[in-house]
Amino acid sequence: MQPTSELAGSALKARTFGSMGTVISLTVPARALGTAAVPGTAGGGERELDAAAAAVARVFARADETFSLYRPDSEASRLARGELSLRDSSAGMRDRYADAISWRLMTEGAFTPERPDGVLDLSGIIKGYAIGQAGEVLRSRGITDWCLNAGGDVLVMGSPVPGSGASWAAGIVDPLDRSALLSAYALGGPGARRALATSGLAERGDHIWTARSRGAEFAQVSVAAAGIVAADVLATAIVAGGTAMLHRATDSWDIDVLAVRRTGELLATPGFRA
């Protein structure tokens, strides 16, 4: 029997670490942790969270070691320098390359894993893929309520108040004032959409090249979907492909979209309507 104050349930515990050039945050309801721990001895839950965060960090570190173009020793860098060909690359590299090429087909080229200089850059799907993998790791550790945020891309499971069925509330940054929220979206809980990704012109990395060369229509695009890779890729594709890609995406995928034009005007699917 735990004290009532803990059963009130809104207390969250977070761990953060840096990877892939950004910061990854793992947030878990305190109640979901250390259920076997004796109240007052505080430690079981914290240790469980530390171990879970370390496991998540290993997923991101492994992905970064293989796919980062910022690391000269990564497999991706060796591919980029031509020291390695795709057919001799690892199975993981070829699988992600196949994923990226199929996304390029499905988005009619709005998403592409190749830089204008011809270098293969899979960073557009690697972060999403790593987030999804990290989610599987958490699930395999028996943690069923969590929120994972990697540099603004979010994947959740369960609820911030375990057993309540309540959704995780995700805020969306206002691209015109990054200290304010533009909107919000309910993730997980009873809904099927567990992932929310946001792409923008202010984004780190440079996988939105078409946007740069054509003069992008959107300053920021958020996509809510069942899976984080789809949400991330489609947000990127809409920034690159503009209004035409936005409508193609809402026609072809079961997603919600909130797009901010450079003038500040909003375009949103019904799911974002107050």
């Binding site: 969250l12 840096g18 050039g21 950004t22 910061v23 945050s25 947030t27 972060k127 929120c147 945020n149 540099g151 603004g152 891309d153 979010v154 959740v156 911030p160 995780w168 509330a169 995700a170 805020g171 969306i172 940054v173 691209p175 990054r178 929220l181 919000a184 979206y185 929310l196 990704a197 946001t198 792409s199 923008g200 012109l201 202010a202 984004e203 780190r204 990395g205 920021q220 958020s222």
Partner: peptide, 14 residues
């Protein structure tokens, strides 16, 4: 921001 548990935005650097 007081009412949300997480924030989505274009990727920020460390």
């Amino acid at each position: 921001s007081a009412n949300v548990q997480t924030i989505s935005g274009a990727t920020v650097t460390s």
